[in-house]
Amino acid sequence: MNDERSFFILLTLRMLPPFAVVLPIVSYWVFFGLADTFFALIWTYTIFSIPLTVWLIKGFVDEIPKSIDDAARVDGYSFWRMFRRILIPLLGAGLAATTALVWLFLWNEFLFALKVAGGNVVTYTAHLPQLKLGQRTLWNVFAAMGVIGSIPPIIILILFRRYIIRLYLR
């Protein structure tokens, strides 16, 4: 099946460990003169989240009965109208869960944050290794950042818990 093959190719993006691809990616951004910018980090993250996002959302789309699609065609919906009026509302919970999950992964992401950015643009994970002054590690600051850094995911998890549980139950 063509669908399955393209889906598989998409998923292979995730098969290599990030270590294997981080160096070429950094050299790309250096080549374009965009290394260590928000732009570079955002695009890297976006592209690397696509497989997971597609996989999760495909699951939610598959849950919608085919007959809904047929009914919409019989009712006279055009493709885009059906997408907007039927599909998106029905996917609401799934989109929320996926957003939350992808956000959590990226919030905790370290390697790309450190290598693609990490100088001018620093995420909280990439900031942690910088908390060393010579031989001394600033454990107090380290611990404080750990606490602060875990507040947003906790808030997200509480807000989206209903959807995320559904996602794991699937």
Binding site: P65, I68, D70, A71, A72, V74, D75, G76, L90, G92
Partner: peptide, 28 residues
């Protein structure tokens, strides 16, 4: 289907779950 002027009642009814009965009936 629209050009043929047919209507279909599906086995699982295929009602839009996020719309009320009124909105479902009114959708076409």
């Amino acid at each position: 289907p629209v050009e043929r002027k047919v209507a279909v009642v599906f086995q699982d009814f295929a009602l839009y779950p996020h719309l009320t009965a009124f909105e479902n009936i009114a959708s076409p």
